[in-house]
Amino acid sequence: MKIIDLSLPIENGMYMPKAYWHPEVAFSVLGVHEKEGRMSRKIQLGTHTGTHVDAALHFLPNGATIDEAPLERLIGEAQLIDVSFVGPRQAIKAADLERGCKSGIKCSRVVIRTGWVERAWGTDVFGKDKPYFTKESIQWLLDHNINLMLIDTGDPDSDDDFVVGKPAPIHVMIFENDVTLIENVTNLDKLPEFFKIIALPLKLKGCDAAPGRVIAIVD
Rank of each mutant, 00 (worst) to 15 (best):
residue 2 K to L: 12
residue 2 K to W: 00
residue 3 I to S: 09
residue 4 I to H: 05
residue 5 D to P: 10
residue 7 S to P: 10
residue 7 S to G: 11
residue 8 L to Q: 11
residue 8 L to T: 08
residue 9 P to S: 15
residue 10 I to W: 01
residue 11 E to F: 04
residue 11 E to S: 12
residue 17 P to W: 11
residue 18 K to T: 09
residue 18 K to C: 00
residue 19 A to K: 12
residue 20 Y to P: 03
residue 22 H to M: 07
residue 24 E to T: 08
residue 24 E to C: 01
residue 24 E to D: 14
residue 24 E to P: 00
residue 28 S to V: 06
residue 28 S to Y: 07
residue 29 V to G: 01
residue 30 L to M: 13
residue 31 G to V: 00
residue 35 K to E: 14
residue 35 K to T: 14
residue 36 E to H: 04
residue 37 G to C: 07
residue 39 M to F: 09
residue 43 I to A: 09
residue 45 L to N: 01
residue 47 T to K: 02
residue 48 H to M: 12
residue 50 G to H: 04
residue 51 T to D: 01
residue 51 T to P: 02
residue 53 V to D: 01
residue 53 V to H: 07
residue 54 D to Q: 03
residue 54 D to I: 00
residue 55 A to L: 06
residue 56 A to M: 09
residue 58 H to D: 08
residue 58 H to Y: 14
residue 59 F to Q: 13
residue 59 F to D: 15
residue 60 L to V: 06
residue 61 P to F: 07
residue 61 P to Y: 03
residue 61 P to W: 00
residue 62 N to M: 10
residue 63 G to Q: 06
residue 64 A to G: 13
residue 66 I to P: 03
residue 66 I to E: 04
residue 66 I to T: 06
residue 69 A to H: 03
residue 70 P to N: 08
residue 79 Q to D: 07
residue 84 S to N: 15
residue 84 S to R: 15
residue 92 I to L: 05
residue 93 K to S: 12
residue 101 C to Y: 06
residue 101 C to D: 09
residue 105 I to S: 02
residue 105 I to G: 04
residue 105 I to D: 01
residue 107 C to L: 01
residue 108 S to H: 15
residue 108 S to D: 14
residue 108 S to A: 11
residue 109 R to I: 02
residue 110 V to M: 09
residue 110 V to W: 05
residue 113 R to S: 15
residue 116 W to E: 04
residue 118 E to R: 09
residue 120 A to D: 11
residue 121 W to P: 02
residue 121 W to G: 04
residue 122 G to I: 11
residue 124 D to M: 08
residue 127 G to E: 14
residue 128 K to M: 05
residue 128 K to A: 06
residue 128 K to N: 09
residue 131 P to T: 10
residue 131 P to Y: 06
residue 134 T to P: 13
residue 135 K to H: 13
residue 136 E to N: 12
residue 137 S to Q: 11
residue 137 S to E: 09
residue 138 I to R: 02
residue 138 I to N: 03
residue 142 L to Q: 07
residue 147 N to I: 00
residue 150 L to Q: 01
residue 151 I to K: 08
residue 153 T to A: 15
residue 154 G to P: 02
residue 155 D to G: 15
residue 157 D to A: 06
residue 159 D to P: 02
residue 162 F to Y: 15
residue 163 V to N: 08
residue 167 P to T: 11
residue 169 P to K: 04
residue 169 P to R: 06
residue 170 I to C: 10
residue 171 H to C: 13
residue 171 H to F: 14
residue 172 V to F: 00
residue 175 F to D: 00
residue 180 T to P: 00
residue 183 E to N: 14
residue 184 N to T: 11
residue 189 D to H: 13
residue 191 L to P: 11
residue 192 P to W: 08
residue 193 E to Y: 11
residue 194 F to H: 15
residue 194 F to Q: 12
residue 194 F to G: 01
residue 197 I to G: 07
residue 200 L to D: 03
residue 203 K to D: 14
residue 205 K to L: 12
residue 208 D to N: 04
residue 209 A to E: 04
residue 209 A to P: 03
residue 210 A to F: 05
residue 211 P to L: 02
residue 211 P to R: 00
residue 212 G to F: 02
residue 213 R to F: 07
residue 214 V to Q: 00
residue 216 A to Q: 02
